[in-house]
Amino acid sequence: MSSVALAILVLAILALIFGVILGFAAVRFKVEGDPIVDQIDALLPQTQCGQCGHPGCRPYAEGIAAGEAINKCPPGGQTTIDQLAELLNVDSIPLDSEHGVEDVRKIAYIREDECIGCTKCIQACPVDAILGAAKQMHTVIVDECTGCDLCVEPCPVDCIDMLPVATTTLNWKWPEPPQTNNLIATDRQPRFEENPS
């Protein structure tokens, strides 16, 4: 009888010890992860264009965290969708064309001699990228503009153009070398030309 009691006692003590250790570990090594919304928000392009149907990227991040589809952000495009899929551990899906299509990066330019200084674009710009005061011509700060398009519509004289960002020697990127060999699953396309030389 006493041996049974002893066994129970030993087990109980062991359980207690491990419980304390585990509890301590849980407190001590707690991972202070970013809340998921912050992590999602960090992946979104922050163009703040609202094409996803939300008034900005953060609300959409909250939406995704609440279970919304991840393919509603055209400025981010497939890259962002892939990153989101990886973060959330779901399958990647193509961009929902209902919200727009992927486009080259653009930046707003105000034709300054036509600007009437109505300040409407300033009010529309989500990142305060437009400089100017009432009745003065306005200018876009190129480095701040996210290319969200929101300032184009309100302009009463249509003097805002969205122009693609020009490639200069400063932002030029090396092209990807041609892929010559490929792995099994995808390589049945006749992608090979014999080298003519």
Binding site: P45, Q46, Q48, C57, R58, V127, D128, T146, N171, K173
Partner: peptide
């Protein structure tokens, strides 16, 4: 380019939030 983009996005977020 990716890093630059990321910096830009962060910057845009800051400005958006400030606004």
């Amino acid at each position: 380019a990716e890093e630059l983009e990321q910096r830009k996005a962060d910057h845009a977020r800051e400005r958006f939030e400030a606004r």
